[in-house]
Design a protein around this nucleic acid. Sequence first.
DNA 1: TTTACTGCAAATATTTTGCAATATC
DNA 2: GATATTGCAAAATATTTGCAGTAAA
Lengths: 165, 165
Amino acid sequence: MKESKIAAVERILDNYLEMNNHRKTPERYAILKAIYNINGHFTLEELNERLASEQKFPVSRATLYNTLNLFLSLRLVTRHRFQGSTKYEACYDKKSHCHQICTICGKVTEVRSPDIIMAVENMHLKRFRKDGFALYVYGICSNCQSQMTKVKKLDKQDKQKSKTK
Amino acid sequence: MKESKIAAVERILDNYLEMNNHRKTPERYAILKAIYNINGHFTLEELNERLASEQKFPVSRATLYNTLNLFLSLRLVTRHRFQGSTKYEACYDKKSHCHQICTICGKVTEVRSPDIIMAVENMHLKRFRKDGFALYVYGICSNCQSQMTKVKKLDKQDKQKSKTK
DNA sequence: TTTACTGCAAATATTTTGCAATATC
DNA sequence: GATATTGCAAAATATTTGCAGTAAA
C-alpha cells in the first residue's frame, strides 16, 4: 500500500520533471521518499535529520527549501504555519486538513470531518479551481480549561485577601 | 458604529488588565485603537508605520510583538501566516475567516460562507471549547489558470520544434 | 557540452530575549 | 516604592540569495 503510494507520487514528479526539462536528481527522489515515509507533520529540521541519519542522504538546507517549494507547487506536500513553527505534511491523496488548535498551550490535534469536506466542496467560488483546503478551529482544550478554572479560583482568593487586608 | 466597537474591545482589555493586575499603558490602548482602525489584514510592519505616522505614537518592535500576543490570547486579533508573510486582523465580532488562496500567485481573497460557518458550528469536537476558525481553500485563480494555458501552448510548440529539428 | 541543480556561506527577514530605564499602580 | 512594561540592542531562528563546482541530459 505505502509502496504504491510512493510509486504514484514518484510518477507525478517524473512526469513534471520530464515535461519541464528539469533534472531527475537523486536528492529530489530521496527527499520525496523520506517525506512519504513520515507519518503526519514534520519540520524542515526533522526532515533534514531523517535524511542524514536514516536515509544516509544528507542534503543542504537550501536544497531542502528548494525541493519543498517544488513539492508544494506540485501539491505533493502542504505547509502549515502553526504558532512559531512551520510544519510540512505529505498530501497526495489527502486534500483536506482539519485541525483543532488550543490557543493557550498550542496543542494541535487533527480531526476528521466529512461534513466540512462536503461543505467546502459545495462552496461556490467564482472562477477558482479548488485543489484542497485546511481548516483551523481555534479554542481551548480540556486541559487548559481546567487550568483556567484553577487560576480563577486562586484569583478570587487573592482578591478576598487584599480586601480583608 | 465603529466607535462603539472600539469601546467594546477597550472594555475587554480594561477588564482583563484589571482582573490580572496588569498595567493600563498608553501603548496598549494606542495599539488596540490602531488595529481596529485598520480594515482587513495588516502586517506588524504596517501596524508599526501607522502608529508612527498616523497616530504619532511610535512603539518598539518588542512591544508590538508583546502586545499582539496579548491581543491574540484575548482573541481581539487573529494571525494568519500566508506564504512568507504573517498577517494580523482585528477579530472581535468576527470569529470566522474563510480565504481562497491561489497557490501560483499567492493572491488571497476573503470569502463569506454561511454554510461553512454552520458546518463548523455543528462540528463535534470532544472536550474542546471552539472560539473561532480559519478556513484556507487552496487552488488556482482564473488569472493563473489562463497563464498556465498559455504556457502549455508554448510548451507544445517547443516540443514540435525539437521534434522537427 | 550545456546548463540545471547542489552546497556553501553570506545576506535578509523574522521573532525572541536580557536588561536597564521608565511609568503605572 | 514595588514591579510590570517599555525600548533597545543583541541573540536566536528562519528563509533567501549569489555563486562556484558538480552532475544530469
